[in-house]
Simulated scan of single mutants.
Amino acid sequence: MSSIWRRLLISLSASLALAGAASAADCDALIASFKSAIADQAFEKVKDAMGAIADDSACNFNIDAYRIQEINSIIDMAGAAPTDDARKQMIEFVEGIMEIGGDWRSAEHLGDYQAHRGEYEEALGGYETAISFLSRAAPPATPKDREELLARAAAAKSQASDDQEGRSSSRFVASSRDLSGRLGGIYSRELLRGFEVLAVPVPVNFYFGQARFTPAGEKAVEELAEAVKQQNVETVTLVGHTDPRGDRQYNVELSKRRAAAARDYLLSHGVKARILVDGKGPDQPFDISLLGRPVTQEEAWALDRRVEWIRQGAPD
């Protein structure tokens, strides 16, 4: 190799090394700015710093991790927003970028934030988004993670549709659907991973002291029937539950009659599966420790009043 070519190669290598060092330094500065904006709880600065990272080809190799940090930090900021308009702006921004940059944990975080505010229909949307993200490679969800996510989605769905045993009117909040039109949310097959059997709490509402569906309860059992038919199961087990008020034995019998009412509805609406029923009365209350938030006594009792679909882990 001639001395001229050798000098050119040395010069080029030196230039590339300098450029690489400069890019690394620039990236470090952008990341430092991003972290500083998060620490300062500065919404606009976080967005701008994240945008700068995304636009830098040398810095955006770990863009997904930074996007998750952005989402979670803005949800936290919304909790301390100075005005309701500012809070709404933050949450709308998060919802807008969740699909492209979120994971199941960040979507669950959004659901938790909304459930804490008593915005149960919105919280259900966050939890259902989290459920739809479970199939993504990372982060992996353990059976305990899935159990908690199911409980939170089921509680939000129940609380959003609660008609206080027929004493008030309530619009039933339907489960989300996937691109094929199949029911998702609490009925998602993704929740079954890691379980041979999973108890799915279904918010089937009944009139006080009766085994007669309220209007919202009839919508819930109609949705259950659709889910059972879609998943093509051979055997269905339905278990009724009540809150603890009143005589225990009466409540056990009431819970059995309510599970039987759900069975009869399913059979009369095209479900071909063998359906078993049982009733536990007040003996197996809803596990509110899975919610990660406080509930009132009335809310806990409302969650206790449910029908569970004991779902097997067999494929469709």
Rank of each mutant, 00 (worst) to 15 (best):
R117V: 02
Q312G: 11
V252F: 01
R167H: 15
A86I: 07
N62T: 07
R171K: 15
G185I: 13
H269F: 00
N205D: 15
D28R: 13
I97D: 12
Y66R: 01
L124Y: 10
A37D: 03
A174H: 15
N251Y: 07
D56Y: 07
D162V: 00
G194R: 01
G79A: 11
E234P: 04
T129R: 14
L30K: 11
A141N: 06
G240Q: 03
V200T: 08
G111E: 05
R136L: 11
A314H: 10
S36E: 01
V228H: 04
R293H: 09
A58I: 07
A21V: 08
A21P: 03
I75W: 02
F61M: 01
M1H: 02
A58V: 05
L254Q: 03
E298P: 00
H269K: 02
Y187T: 11
V277T: 15
D145E: 05
L183A: 04
L134F: 14
A107G: 04
A273Q: 00
T129S: 13
A199H: 05
V295W: 03
T129D: 13
V277Q: 09
I75V: 10
Q89E: 15
Q284N: 04
I71L: 02
I38T: 00
D76R: 09
L150N: 06
Y207I: 06
A138K: 03
Q164E: 11
A123L: 09
F195Y: 07
K157T: 15
Q114E: 12
L303P: 09
S13V: 12
D26H: 08
A32Q: 14
Q69M: 12
I4M: 04
G217F: 08
G194H: 07
D103H: 05
A115W: 03
Q312P: 00
D264P: 01
E253H: 09
E99Y: 01
G181I: 02
A302G: 12
R182H: 09
I131T: 13
K280T: 04
F133L: 14
I97N: 10
I75A: 05
Q312L: 08
W309T: 01
W104A: 03
S170G: 14
Q230T: 06
T235S: 13
L110T: 00
K219M: 14
A153S: 15
F93H: 15
Q230M: 10
T296V: 06
K144N: 12
G79C: 08
R117Y: 05
F206H: 07
L291H: 11
G194A: 10
V197L: 14
S289W: 03
L290R: 12
L179F: 05
V221E: 12
G209K: 07
Y113H: 13
G118L: 06
A78N: 11
A86C: 01
Q230C: 11
D178R: 00
A261W: 07
V277G: 06
W301P: 00
G185E: 13
A302F: 01
G313Q: 10
L290Q: 11
Q41D: 02
A29R: 10
K219E: 15
Y250W: 04
I63H: 15
L12P: 01
P143M: 01
G279E: 07
